[in-house]
Amino acid sequence: MASLIHCPHCGSRPKEEFSIRGDASLVRPSPSASDEEWHRYVHIRDNPKGRYKEHWHHAFGCRRWLVVERDNFTHEVFSVTDAAEAAKAVQA
């Protein structure tokens, strides 16, 4: 099955247990950023084909937010990390 996601906490699970929030590569602008910048952050999205980072919520399992890096064309999953860990890695 192409749609198995390997949750770092629960193991291999079907995609039905998850809900997808969207792009995980966006960085929240500073509170004083321009309206244009905030508009881009809140509303403007690319629609890429290929390798893509997304926030997935394991709603029916551990209820943790995950960052799933996958190819949305071939459904290949490259990595799955807990969003908290991913955020720490970005801050470090």
Binding site: C10, G11, R13, E16, E17, A59, F60, G61, C62, R63
Partner: peptide, 10 residues
């Protein structure tokens, strides 16, 4: 043990 989905329910 595992937290999962059974008959579409948590």
């Amino acid at each position: 043990s595992a937290a999962t989905q059974c008959c579409h329910a948590a």
